[in-house]
Design a protein around this nucleic acid. Structure first.
Ligand SMILES: NC(=O)c1ccc[n+]([C@@H]2O[C@H](COP(=O)([O-])OP(=O)(O)OC[C@H]3O[C@@H](n4cnc5c(N)ncnc54)[C@H](O)[C@@H]3O)[C@@H](O)[C@H]2O)c1
Ligand SMILES: NC(=O)c1ccc[n+]([C@@H]2O[C@H](COP(=O)([O-])OP(=O)(O)OC[C@H]3O[C@@H](n4cnc5c(N)ncnc54)[C@H](O)[C@@H]3O)[C@@H](O)[C@H]2O)c1
Lengths: 256, 256
DNA sequence: AGGCGCTTGTGAAGACGTGCACAAATCGCG
DNA sequence: CGCGATTTGTGCACGTCTTCACAAGCGCCT
């Protein structure tokens, strides 16, 4: 189908290489690689093997190589990957060559933390606006930015070019806020409110739900506990196996 | 009505249905179903069809039915699922029948927001301790809890039975904190610091990284933009990018 | 130049996840 | 009591993701 272009692609690196369509799973890992690469660059590494980078990013090296191969051939056999070049490539693919503007809606408990978070700035983004519906909050200054009323969104969107909207309002308000964001042309939303948003096609939504993460962990806790409790279900008696076999697996100290 | 048994399961009559091992993807969705079910229960629904629940949870109904079928047969053909029963089942499987104790380490910017978050309590958890390394923070009271020094962790773990540790420290401290948590017997960790943690087998780690989420969204923004720019082969003439807002084409909204 | 060790890039196979489509089960009603 | 309407539970086919294993490529050393 898609003709693989040869390593000497028509467009020079840095110009406009047509961006391949990557598997979603790969896209989700590229940011991890990018973070690991920045750490490596800071510690003076100029090249890194797939094994080393995979280690730093916490993944399997074969998977890493396959992921990177989707971007093109940017490694050197027998040597590894050029750290700087790879950073540029991944940043290009992720669209981080321009610093995207983020609008944060809902400057409450969580919103305050987000507004003061330096990871926005250090990793390719820029908070372009803080918005809230509560008149008591409007005018408050956080980290050098002033909270504006959410009704100002159309004006803000016209002035700054908002790429991404972040929703940190209560769940009851989230859908309305999402609608407002979509109305002013935002096509990417990060939602912290625990609810599903419905948006038109062409708009991407990602959600972060703390309670869901905890509940997934809870499930695994539950399972680990039940494993030690009921080893088998077969007709055979309960032979005491906790001593011997499970050395490689769980080392749990769940006692008490 | 609540004759619960299902074919082939060794479900002993009584309180301990052996918990099946669920596909990871299913486990990750159960919390979503649970949230949707609670909403439905609050709005007076006693039963719900797979279509209705799938809708409320933002998934495909076939997928939902397959997910639920892994827990056993708790639906009634021609009718749907009993909301209350399903809530109980999912909460049981997720291990939410006991309110698990959470230790929050790192009470800074983000930690404050988390400490004040009522979603912990309303969705099956209990903040058992707030810990920080900064002496200036120790003693501070947040939401009725007092911040303790992180060195108190062993004592706290002995008093309360900590099921889950949440790390909200800077990345530089995260590994050390993880080690301390593991040392006192914690086998589930939720990590907000942007770094990989290495832990022994048997310990589960989940991470939440805001910047990664934004970067994934950025990728899709980038791709949407490039799709409108080059419809076919590379010889694009000047793409007249209208001053108005571009209406993008179908792209899928999905997350996690 | 040639060989050797190291590392990438990838084909193939298998594991896993998804969604369709339909039989089986249940309810309500005449 | 039987029938049609409805909805679950699942077999199956398909797509995506992971992992293995190894040939091809590269640099270095002799
Ligand atoms: N606090 C946390 O640690 C945390 C963690 C995970 C998820 N969440 C979720 O994040 C969301 C925010 O949590 P929070 O603790 O900051 O709540 P909060 O009540 O402290 O803040 C909500 C803010 O949103 C504003 N708001 C309400 N309606 C609005 C609207 N229509 N438009 C614009 N702004 C509006 C409010 O004025 C308030 O300032 C909630 O949905 C919560 O469930 C919070
Ligand atoms: N603020 C955000 O919105 C946000 C969003 C996403 C991720 N994060 C991440 O969450 C983490 C915390 O962010 P923050 O903004 O709250 O930072 P912060 O500096 O405000 O807070 C960090 C806290 O951790 C404490 N700490 C440091 N070392 C410790 C140790 N060894 N043991 C116990 N406590 C220790 C510090 O005393 C401080 O109170 C960072 O890794 C950050 O990258 C923050």
């Amino acid at each position: 189908m898609s003709q693989h272009r040869h390593p000497g692609a028509p467009g020079r690196a840095g110009a406009v290489p047509a961006l391949p369509d990557l598997p979603e799973a790969t896209v989700a890992r590229l940011p991890e690689y990018l973070r690991a690469l920045h750490n490596l660059a800071e510690t003076g590494h100029e090249t890194i093997s797939s094994e080393g980078l995979a280690n730093a990013a916490g993944v399997n090296s074969a998977k890493l190589r396959k992921d990177l191969s989707h971007l093109g051939s940017y490694g050197t056999r027998g040597v590894g990957y050029d750290v700087g070049l790879l950073i540029d490539q991944i940043e290009y693919v992720l669209g981080l060559t321009q610093r995207r503007a983020v609008a944060l809606v809902g400057v409450g408990n969580l919103g305050h933390a987000l507004a003061g978070y330096d990871g926005f700035v250090s990793r390719g983004f820029r908070i372009a606006a803080l918005l809230d519906a509560d008149p008591a909050r409007v005018g408050e200054e956080i980290n050098g930015m002033t909270v504006q009323h959410v009704d100002e969104l159309p004006r803000v969107a016209a002035e700054e070019s908002i790429a991404i909207g972040v929703i940190a309002t209560p769940a009851t308000a989230a859908q309305a806020v999402a609608d407002q964001l979509v109305a002013v042309g935002v096509t990417s939303i990060l939602n912290f409110a625990p609810c599903v948003l419905s948006v038109p096609d062409g708009v991407d939504v990602r959600k972060v739900d703390l309670a869901i993460e905890l509940q997934i962990l809870s499930f695994h806790e539950h399972r680990k506990a039940s494993l030690t409790a009921l080893p088998t279900t077969g007709g055979s008696a309960l032979t005491a196996l906790p001593g011997g076999l499970a050395v490689t697996e769980s080392q749990e100290a769940i006692g008490t």
